[in-house]
Design a protein around this nucleic acid. Structure first.
Lengths: 177, 177
DNA sequence: GCGATAATACTCGGATACTTCGTGTCCGAGTAAAGAAGG
DNA sequence: CCTTCTTTACTCGGACACGAAGTATCCGAGTATTATCGC
């Protein structure tokens, strides 16, 4: 029961990308600098978000990442599942069947009650994460945070965002091909 | 976001111990046999439960484990925390402060909104686990499961439980000393 | 035959290797931009 | 001066080491049982 620390970085980056202009991007190196992280390692997680169609990436100079859809339609659950994988935390190994007494398979059609209870708790966890939209995170930050941090964040975004040329053919590479 | 597989074994063992008589114990080797697990490894997890005061252990021949308190007062959360540790799954590294721009510490007195959202979800997870009492797990098993599995489980318990001598001085070793 | 004593076997507990997953890093493919050359 | 082409530099993407945690195992400390010996 432990989440990788890449989750924190992924959420922070997504929140920062929510502040960039609609047709602009921000490079992974800039975000790594903003949070004092290793650029090479952050790319790995950003790539996971891109593969999950949460971010879109643009290669080349003045390229970078952007949100693949509006912050209203991105939840913390999306990000967590993209980074940590979609598998449930509790994996029932059906050890109730591994004993020496061999019963017929028809005796185990009913699902394991322990597994059901654990999955029910995990559904509650995911439901809470699904209710937390990225736009809410940003809005709360804008309302509650210290004005200095808000100003610093906005200045950083303004300074590092790279506006994209008005693309004649808007073929933004989204996700893994 | 992945739980160790020892959690499953711990819960199954606790549920089985809920079926043994009040003043009887069951050895770890018997439970390992019941679920087809390595006895040496299962002991490790049972030891964790003992350290958390969930189980009580009795050494020597005809010794073993028992519940330290009634199954009504044991929840799945107790077991999960005993095996996986009490640390939250999401650990906020405060990367928002690790950037190059050094702001005064007073700018970060407000807690990180991302951390708050993640912890809120985890509280929901733990609350759901805290509502699942071990007695409920056993009761559901007795009501819903196949009669053959119930009979097999009861027979196994009846065959392997070791009644303790009526102790003149009931000094059952509970937890780590 | 009964009691005390010593040996025994079984139990849990902690210390010790091995494997897997997460962490961290590097190099290569691709692309837009900038600069030079030609018209 | 404008257009075109070449070069350049910057970006993301995947492949490659390192380390920590979980997994699996073995050996030692402790105790109730059991057998033996003496009374």
């Amino acid at each position: 029961m432990k989440l990788g620390e890449g989750v924190e970085a992924a959420i922070h980056c997504a929140a920062m990308l929510a502040g960039v202009d609609g047709n602009s991007t921000m490079s992974g190196a800039a975000m790594a600098e903003a949070f004092g992280l290793s650029p090479s390692y952050l790319l790995k997680h950003l790539n996971q978000l891109t593969a999950a169609r949460i971010l879109g990436s643009v290669s080349g100079p003045s390229g970078g990442y952007r949100l693949a859809r509006s912050a209203e339609r991105i939840t913390l659950l999306d990000i967590v599942l993209a980074v940590e994988g979609t598998e449930p935390a509790f994996r029932c190994g059906e050890i109730r069947q591994r004993g020496p007494v061999k019963l017929d398979a028809s005796a185990y059609v009913k699902p394991c009650g322990i597994n059901a209870a654990m999955l029910k708790a995990e559904r509650a966890y995911r439901a809470a994460l699904a209710e937390a939209k990225l736009s809410d995170i940003v809005a709360d930050f804008m309302n509650d945070a210290d004005p200095r941090t808000i100003a610093a964040s906005c200045a950083f975004v303004e300074r590092h965002q790279r506006p994209q040329k008005v693309q004649p053919s808007p073929k933004v590479q989204q996700g893994k091909v």
